[in-house]
Amino acid sequence: MPAFTNLLYDLDAASGILTLTINRPTKLNALSHDTIRELREALQLALDDAQVRGIILTGSGEKAFVAGADIAELTALDEIAGRRAAEFGQEAFCLFEESSKPVIAAVNGFALGGGCELAMACHLRIASENARFGQPEVNLGLVPGYGGTQRLPQLIGKGKALELLLTADIIKADEALRLGLVNHVVPLPELLEFSRQLLGRILSKAPLAVGLVIDCVNAAYDKERHGYQAEANAFSRCFESEDFREGTSAFLEKRPAAFTGK
């Protein structure tokens, strides 16, 4: 397994599920520059590894997924360095959003600021009952810098997103579920197992089709792409895949499909 300073990289070869754990418990898993760099490196390793089929992202301990950015680092930035930091974080989080392998955020506690932004960059979010979400940057004289002003309105709508962004309110897991910010809320002891089971259901489907669905949905929010055209292109591409032939044969023969991702 690769070694990181701020992350735990744990691949279950039998299921193909990689669990990435942000491991800075004394800092409530705050996102330092090095942590974001390691997240980027770990995801690239996962995308290049055929054994990895899906990813669960979580935080160490029971208090925080990611409590925010590393404020001590932010205080040392000037205008130019601040832009670079935002662009660095945005690029890293976009890699999660654009991953062809499904990524589930298992949110165990506080997901504030950069933590909420990181969770929103994942494809699905499962929250423990003690999870808390918010974008409190205006309390510090800042705005979200890692995509929060863009993804939060996509997930919960412009009006409510503006309210949370402007008031810096922190919401509980049940409110996040009601708003559509998270997909499920479960007791903390069940969080990882629930996430594994959900990811396992996804991984039982055709890998190529799963990746193309992710791409098509992302295309709907990309001003440089045409979502319907992306869908038509993906649909046509599936007809050349072995998975399509296997899936349709299995359906007609009333047996489970054995997909290969080809």
Score class of each variant (00 low, 15 high):
Glu175Arg: 12
Val186Lys: 02
Gln150Lys: 10
Ala161Ser: 07
Ile126Val: 13
Ala232Asp: 15
Asp174Arg: 10
Ser195Leu: 10
Tyr221Pro: 00
Gly145Gln: 06
Val213Pro: 02
Leu164His: 09
Gly211Asp: 09
His184Phe: 10
Leu191Phe: 05
Phe235Cys: 08
Arg201Pro: 00
Gln135His: 14
Glu193Asp: 15
Arg201Val: 03
Glu231Val: 15
Ala173Asp: 00
Arg225His: 06
Leu165Gly: 09
Phe235Asn: 13
Val185Asp: 00
Gly145Thr: 04
Leu142His: 04
Glu175Phe: 05
Leu199Cys: 03
Gly148Thr: 03
Leu199Ser: 08
Ala232Phe: 12
Lys158Gly: 03
Leu181Lys: 05
Leu212Cys: 13
Tyr146Phe: 15
Arg178Thr: 15
Ser236Tyr: 11
Ala131Tyr: 06
Pro153Met: 14
Gly227Val: 04
Ile214Asp: 05
Leu199Trp: 02
Leu181His: 15
Gln150Cys: 15
Asp169Val: 08
Gly148Cys: 07
Ala206Lys: 03
Glu129Lys: 09
Val186Met: 05
Glu129Ala: 06
Pro189Cys: 06
Thr149Gly: 14
Val210Arg: 02
Arg178Asp: 15
Tyr146Val: 07
Asn233Lys: 13
Gly211Ser: 15
Leu162Asn: 14
Leu166Arg: 09
Tyr221Gly: 04
Gly180Val: 00
Val182Tyr: 03
Glu163Gln: 15
Leu188Gln: 11
His123Asn: 14
Leu208Met: 15
Gly211Gln: 05
Ile170Gln: 12
Gln229Tyr: 12
Pro153Phe: 14
Thr167His: 15
Phe235Ala: 10
Leu124Gln: 06
Gln150Tyr: 13
Leu140Trp: 10
Val210Asn: 05
Lys160Phe: 02
Pro136Gly: 04
Ala173Tyr: 00
His184Glu: 10
Ser128Trp: 01
Pro144Thr: 04
Val210Lys: 07
Ser236Glu: 13
Leu165Pro: 11
Leu155Met: 14
Ala168Met: 14
Thr167Val: 13
Leu155His: 10
Glu224Ile: 05
Pro187Cys: 01
Leu192Met: 03
Leu155Cys: 08
Leu198Ile: 07
Glu175Ile: 12
Glu137Met: 14
Gly200Ala: 02
Leu165His: 01
Asn233Glu: 15
Asp169Met: 09
Ser236His: 10
Leu179Asp: 12
Gln229Val: 14
Arg125Cys: 01
Ser236Gly: 01
Ser128Ala: 14
Gly200Glu: 05
Pro207His: 05
Glu175Pro: 04
Phe194Ala: 09
Leu212Pro: 01
Ala161Asn: 04
Ile156Val: 09
Leu177Ser: 07
Tyr221Gln: 03
Ala206Cys: 01
Leu124Ile: 01
Ala209Gln: 11
Val138Phe: 13
Ala127Glu: 00
Glu129Leu: 03
Ala209Thr: 07
Asp215Leu: 11
Asp215Thr: 15
Leu191Ile: 02
Leu212Ala: 14
Val217Lys: 09
Arg196Lys: 13
Leu179Arg: 04
Leu124Asp: 03
Leu208Glu: 07
Glu190Thr: 01
Glu129Ser: 09
Val185Leu: 04
Gly200Leu: 08
